[in-house]
Design a protein around this nucleic acid. Structure first.
Lengths: 241, 241
DNA sequence: TCCGTAAATTGTTATGACCAATTCGAGAGT
DNA sequence: ACTCTCGAATTGGTCATAACAATTTACGGA
């Protein structure tokens, strides 16, 4: 028979989320601030500590809160960000391929590059340029190169002036970067990647949106190929062990 | 001095997530299946029930699991999807504007439309066409029209053949649709929206990726204007009360 | 004044119990 | 023999309490 499924998950949990959220919107709680201790907060909301913890746990897994034993629970600071974990899980469960992720990343970042060309501020341009300089300095150090690679893309996303877009870019890229950090073993030639980064930067700098998009598209296609190659080598290397 | 922040959140919680995830990957747990009862599962993992519940709660808030009191906890069925709640919270916390969301949605859906033109299967084309027919039938019923509007866009996203992309489209769109369902009060003219949907469909059908992208871009720009207008009317209406 | 140690604070885990919703089977009625 | 109803068993949701671990804070000695 089974017609319906109520599904309404946990009354109290949602109440906690709503209540904490309200605190934040009233500016009674700013990024970096510490929440009241659990024992006290539970009393304020008129619920038990386990129930409160369920709600806080939900906010923690969303990445809104963060807690340190002995210290307290804090409202996260820093730029807005979504946890990549849910997407990573979903991807593994349904067998999303890395190719699809790259394709999605391309769409997002190509869009971001176009907007960045229209809106980037001087500071943001400076940040991009600095990261390119750091990449030059790290040509012999794959891990370090990757760090500044990430930072450059993050700067472009930020320069799009669209925090929603930047958040999605970050979420998708994080998964690919994390994977790549494990497979990037030996330094193959980073000069090509660096040159493509510079091409993206020059286009943004000269406010040429179409060229910025095209450059970013080209860059990510190449990155995808490099990634696939590294994956292959990584697998062969593991098989040999 | 505060140099570091350990941050490692909840040992046991992550263990539960990892363990359940493992069950799923081993195909011991398929979509729609019921998990063992909490009391039993806790014993299997050698942890207490509260700890187990913390982990399950994390998976629930990610949208991987779903529980019904008295019935059990289930692995969610249906197409892969990310919960929009985290993004919605993040947006409210940092004051993301609806304009930014529309811009992001445009980037995602324009990309999806382009891919759909290259890859859509016959079934997927049929689904799109059916939803357009339903929109014709619902020209006088705003809520119903909106339902098929959503379904059409979902069909396009699915036809992109990229589940990662489809998931992001869904996540962003859900927020805008939910908001719109509340503000869409009287039937203004849906003929224009319908015509633009048809233009998108024809382009995909004829495998013209560039035209599909352009049509989707145009459609979303108009949708954004309609949305802004509805918001304005909604506010004025509320002010009058 | 500085530093280390102990006490207080605060998140983490555990145990046990009870409540509420659902499920499923036994028994009554047809 | 079949169907319906009701109640017991199952299962998730909430609560209270306690012990534990990490951090912070404050006190006291050098």
């Amino acid at each position: 028979m089974q017609i319906i499924q109520p599904v309404r998950s946990a009354q109290n949990t949602e109440q906690v989320v709503a209540r904490v959220f309200e605190l934040i919107k009233r500016d009674e709680l700013k990024p970096g601030d510490r929440l009241p201790p659990e024992r006290e907060l539970a009393k304020q909301l008129g619920i038990s500590r386990p129930s409160l913890r369920a709600g806080l746990g939900s906010l923690i897994s969303m990445g809104v809160l963060q807690s340190r034993q002995g210290a307290g629970t804090f409202l996260v600071d820093g730029p807005p960000a979504l946890d990549s974990e849910p997407l990573r899980l979903l991807a593994e469960l349904h067998g999303f391929s890395y190719d699809h992720m790259f394709e999605t990343r391309s769409i997002l970042e190509v869009g971001a590059a176009g907007l960045a060309a229209e809106r980037a501020t001087g500071d943001q341009l400076a940040t991009m340029s600095e990261e390119i300089a750091e990449m030059f300095a790290a040509l012999k150090d794959p891990q370090q190169f990757l760090v500044h690679d990430i930072a450059f893309h993050r700067a472009v996303a930020a320069a799009s002036g669209n925090p929603t877009l930047a958040t999605l870019v970050e979420m998708v890229s994080a998964i690919l970067y994390e994977r790549r950090r494990d497979t990037i073993e030996r330094a193959h030639d980073f000069n090509e990647a660096l040159e493509l980064h510079r091409r993206v930067y020059r286009a943004i700098r000269s406010r040429n949106a179409e060229e910025a998009r095209e450059a970013m598209r080209e860059h990510i296609v190449r990155a995808q190929r490099a990634f696939a190659l590294e994956e292959k080598q990584h697998r062969e290397r593991q098989q040999k062990d």
